[in-house]
Amino acid sequence: MTTLPDLDSRAADLIDLDERWSAHTYHPLPVVLAEAEGAWVTDVDGRHYLDFLSGYSALNFGHRHPELVRAAREQLDRVTLTSRAFHHDQFGPFCRELAELTGTEMVLPMNSGAEAVESAVKVARKWAYRVKGVPEDRAEVVVAASNFHGRTTTIVSFSTDDTARADFGPFTPGFVVVPYGDAEALAAAVTERTAAVLVEPIQGEAGVIVPPDGYLAGVRRVCDDAGALLIADEIQSGLARTGTVLALDHEHVTADLYTLGKALGGGIMPVSAVAGRADVLGVLRPGEHGSTFGGNPLACAVGRAVVRLLSTGEFQQRATSLGARLHARLGDLVGQGVAEVRGRGL
Results as ranks from 00 to 15, higher is better:
1 M>Y: 06
2 T>N: 08
4 L>M: 06
15 I>R: 08
16 D>Q: 13
16 D>V: 00
19 E>N: 15
19 E>W: 13
22 S>L: 12
30 P>F: 01
36 A>G: 12
37 E>F: 10
38 G>T: 07
45 D>A: 13
46 G>R: 06
47 R>N: 14
49 Y>H: 09
54 S>F: 09
55 G>L: 01
57 S>M: 03
58 A>Y: 01
58 A>T: 13
62 G>A: 04
63 H>C: 07
69 V>K: 01
74 E>H: 10
83 S>E: 15
89 D>N: 13
94 F>Q: 06
97 E>F: 00
106 M>W: 12
113 G>I: 01
114 A>M: 00
117 V>H: 08
117 V>A: 04
118 E>Q: 12
121 V>Q: 11
124 A>W: 00
129 Y>S: 06
130 R>C: 12
135 P>K: 10
135 P>I: 11
137 D>F: 10
139 A>R: 03
141 V>R: 01
143 V>T: 15
143 V>W: 04
144 A>S: 14
148 F>T: 13
148 F>P: 11
149 H>P: 03
150 G>S: 11
151 R>H: 12
152 T>Y: 06
158 F>H: 14
161 D>C: 07
168 F>L: 14
169 G>R: 05
170 P>E: 05
173 P>F: 02
177 V>W: 02
178 V>P: 03
180 Y>E: 08
185 A>T: 11
188 A>H: 07
191 T>D: 06
195 A>Q: 02
199 V>N: 08
199 V>F: 13
200 E>G: 12
202 I>W: 03
202 I>R: 02
210 V>T: 13
214 G>F: 09
220 R>S: 13
221 R>D: 13
222 V>D: 01
227 G>K: 03
228 A>D: 06
232 A>L: 07
232 A>S: 15
234 E>Y: 05
234 E>A: 10
235 I>M: 05
235 I>Q: 04
236 Q>V: 15
240 A>N: 08
241 R>D: 11
244 T>R: 15
245 V>R: 00
247 A>F: 00
252 H>C: 11
252 H>A: 15
253 V>S: 01
255 A>R: 08
256 D>T: 04
256 D>V: 03
256 D>E: 08
257 L>E: 03
259 T>I: 13
268 I>H: 04
269 M>G: 00
271 V>E: 09
272 S>I: 03
287 G>C: 04
287 G>Q: 06
290 G>K: 01
291 S>L: 11
292 T>K: 09
294 G>L: 03
296 N>R: 12
299 A>C: 11
312 T>W: 03
313 G>N: 01
313 G>M: 02
316 Q>P: 02
316 Q>E: 15
320 T>F: 02
321 S>M: 11
321 S>K: 09
328 A>T: 12
328 A>P: 00
333 L>Q: 13
334 V>M: 05
334 V>I: 14
335 G>T: 11
336 Q>G: 07
341 V>G: 01
344 R>S: 01
